[in-house]
Each structure stands twice: as structure tokens, then as C-alpha cells.
Amino acid sequence: MTRITARRKIIRVKLGESSVMRDDVLAVEEPLEMRVNGRSLAVTMRTPGHDFDLAAGFLVSEGIITTGEHFFTARYCAGATAEGVNTYNVLDVTLAPGVAAPDPSLERSFLTTSSCGLCGKASIDAVRTKSAFSVDEDPLVVDAGLLSTFPDKLREAQAVFEKTGGLHAAALFDGTTGEMLVAREDVGRHNAVDKVIGWAVKENLLPLTGTVLMVSSRASFELAQKAMMAGIPVLAAVSAPSSLAAEFATEVGMTLVGFMRGSSMVLYAGDKRIAQDALQPVD
């Protein structure tokens, strides 16, 4: 049985008042070793849960698979304690017959942390990954008023964040109807996105044309690249994007929206996809 939260004794201090000892709830962070066809590919720090989605999304992000048919089977293996209890921290994915195994150059030479999914890349050249899908010609146009509702919808879906205050989240929305298709949480923002994309892989929905990826964090280059690899035309974030994320979005024809607060937002790339009548000016 995997745990996504853990209880811990803490001391709450407030100046001028007596300290209080109480129980607190923390988000669990544990390593997951991902193997492909029995060969170790990467280790990431993640919040347990939806691990098969995480692995499938990771393989899309790395350009290894592009459809659910490529993801043949997945099973937990090894990772047992001395008492023989499975830790569920080692996952082996079997690719479908005919699907090429990952190039050895993709193997991460060290741990992928919960804050950085690119940290284990062997070279700078390996950071940019070629996608099987193009987002440039996606005809989606999103009403700004509809888009402005996505952060609150995402927040409402963050059940574990409500208890711990310590998780990132990502959700996939239909850009026309505003329907939330799936939401996932994780200590790593890149893991949350991989879990969302992995769900779509298993549902055979790639490429994710006409969708919006909403994230609770800043929009990094890595998240923009993951969206592009899944064919997502719009990436929206509660916080700021990085300069490289904005440059990358412009380069590939993706729409990038940041600082989504109430009725205001900032468009950094691909403003053609946002119907701006409902936008409030941002200083």
C-alpha cells in the first residue's frame, strides 16, 4: 500500500506566544526507478501514486513512445525491504514489439530531483527532444474568460495540497468547453505534468490537440517541452515563465500564458489563440 501523505510531530512557533506541539501532514517524497525492458533508465523523486501514468508520460517526454499502443505493460518489481515488503519504488515498463528501446545516451547518470527533471541529462544537446507532433497549426482559440476559470478548477482538484500545502499540480482542460479531463499532483512539477500526459497516453488521446495544460507552478522550459511532446498547444501557469520557456513556445508555435490571477493574465507567446475581449490590462 503506497502512502501519499505522512504524519509528523511538529512545533509551531509564533513570536510572543507559547510554542505549540501538534501533528502535521506532509506530502510523501520517495524515489522511483523507471526501467524499460529491464534496463534502468532514470530515477525520479516523486509522490507515490499514478506511477504508471508517470512512467508513460516520461517516455513521451523523452521521445521514446508516442501512442498508448507503444506502452505494452508495466509492473512493480524489486524494491523489497529486508522483510520482503514491496516498496513500489521500482517500475519496469515493457515496450510493445517493434518499438525501439531507449538510446543508451538517454540514461540518466544521476538522480532526477523533485525540482528538476532535466538535471540528469548527459549533455546540453540532449535537453531538446524532437516531437512527433506539431502544435504550430493547432486551430484552437480559447476564450480568455473561460481560461481564467482554470486556476480555481485546478485548485479545487488538489486534494493532497489541501492537507499538506506541499504539492504541485497539473491539469488538462478541453480548450473549447473548459472541461477538466484529468488532474494530477506531485512534489515535482515535471512529475505532475508527466502523470497528466501519461494518463492521456493510456487513453490513446495523443496528440492532445485542442487542449490546455494548466500548472500550479512557474512555466519552465521543461514543462513547455513536455507539452510540445504531447501535442498540447496551450500552456498556462499560475506563476511566471522562464525566458527560455517563452522563447521555446514562440519557436514551436505554442501559446504560453503566465501570472493567471483572477481575471488577469499575461500572454508571452501565441496570443493568436486567446480571445482577449475579457482580458483586464496588467501593468
Rank of each mutant, 00 (worst) to 15 (best):
M1K: 11
I4G: 02
A6Q: 09
A6C: 03
K9A: 10
V13C: 12
L15V: 08
E30Q: 15
E33Y: 12
E33K: 15
R35M: 15
R35P: 07
V36N: 03
G38P: 13
S40F: 09
L41C: 11
V43D: 00
T47D: 01
P48V: 04
D51W: 00
D53H: 11
A55V: 05
A55R: 03
E62R: 15
I64E: 02
I65C: 13
G68Q: 03
E69N: 14
C77T: 11
G84C: 09
V85I: 14
T87M: 15
Y88I: 03
N89I: 00
L91E: 04
T94K: 14
A96S: 13
P102F: 06
D103S: 15
E107Y: 10
R108E: 01
S109Y: 08
S109A: 12
T113L: 06
T113C: 04
S114D: 04
S115E: 01
C116A: 12
A122P: 01
A126Y: 00
V127K: 10
T129W: 00
T129C: 13
K130H: 07
K130D: 09
S131V: 01
A144L: 07
L147G: 10
P151E: 04
D152Q: 13
E156T: 06
V160F: 07
K163M: 13
T164W: 06
H168V: 05
H168R: 14
A170N: 03
G178W: 00
M180R: 09
V182H: 08
A183Q: 11
V187H: 01
N191G: 07
N191T: 07
P207V: 04
P207E: 00
L208E: 01
T209C: 09
R218G: 15
M228N: 15
M229W: 02
V234P: 00
V234I: 07
L235G: 04
A240N: 08
A240Q: 10
S243C: 05
A246M: 02
F248Y: 14
A249V: 04
A249N: 08
E251K: 13
V252R: 12
T255I: 02
G258Q: 00
M260E: 01
M260H: 04
L267A: 10
Y268S: 08
D271P: 12
D271A: 15
I274A: 11
Q280H: 09
V282I: 13
